[in-house]
Design a protein around this nucleic acid. Structure first.
Lengths: 123, 123
DNA sequence: CTTGATGATCTACACGTGTAAATCAAGCGT
DNA sequence: ACGCTTGATTTACACGTGTAGATCATCAAG
């Protein structure tokens, strides 16, 4: 199931807090993304149709909540990037960031902690 | 300058080796991607038009070579992913991989080496 | 029960992209 | 010089996506 860019912004606010009415979604997304109500409703509709979002409530004033997990979405997106661009290897990707982004000491520390954690937990 | 998915496959073979004639590109990409000659020529044309590839040689049988660097492309793609999905923080992204992909010992080792490198080299 | 408001759905439309056929142009063989 | 051959360019077309107006349906107020 493919979530497009615009749709992912809708998912974003749903992942932050759900369920929500379309009105709330519109309140948050409309100004931020400069979208009309209709646009947001269209996106909601498409998400519902493709099974990424569920709309509950009998007719009128539905409550929307995400059906796919944020982590699954992050996973598939990241996976596709690392596969497409780095032959599926994570380290070269991080190396790329290192080269281009000047990983800050903070990042380094976080990464180190993370790796130690993994070594511990995973054997 | 936006490079689309299909275009990036053309860039891919040019990054591996360039310059090349369209014929060579077609030989490599055609079978692999199941593309017709025309398709590959179209992509080449679009890449040239948008300045991502340069075509040298007077009329007939040009030589193509990439004008943008692979590393720049990797950079912008990765950057946009980490910005869009992880608030610009690299560590959470790696953590995500850790959770989902079961980073293999090999990956861990590579990452560790990389980080040590960075700490050394960068202060 | 009718009407107005509001929320859901349908329809619309331009633009990018993937894919490729049709056409154009230049060099080669005769 | 003249027509094939082949590589470049143009045109084409369907489909997805971003964006939103138009319409439909239902609830609340009178």
């Amino acid at each position: 199931m493919k979530i497009t860019d615009a749709e992912s912004l809708v998912m974003g606010v749903l992942w932050k807090k759900s369920p929500r009415t379309s009105e709330e979604l519109i309140q948050e997304l409309g100004p931020r993304e400069k979208w009309s109500e209709a646009t947001i409703r269209t996106l909601l509709g498409r998400l519902v149709k493709k099974g990424a979002v569920e709309a509950t409530g009998e007719s009128r004033r539905f409550l929307y909540r995400p059906l796919i997990e944020r982590s699954a979405y992050l996973h598939s997106e990241s996976e596709s990037l690392v596969d497409r661009l780095f032959g599926g290897e994570v380290a070269p990707m991080v190396a790329n960031f290192a080269r281009n982004r000047k990983l800050k000491p903070k990042d380094l520390k976080a990464l180190k902690a993370l790796i130690e954690d993994l070594e511990d937990g995973d054997g």
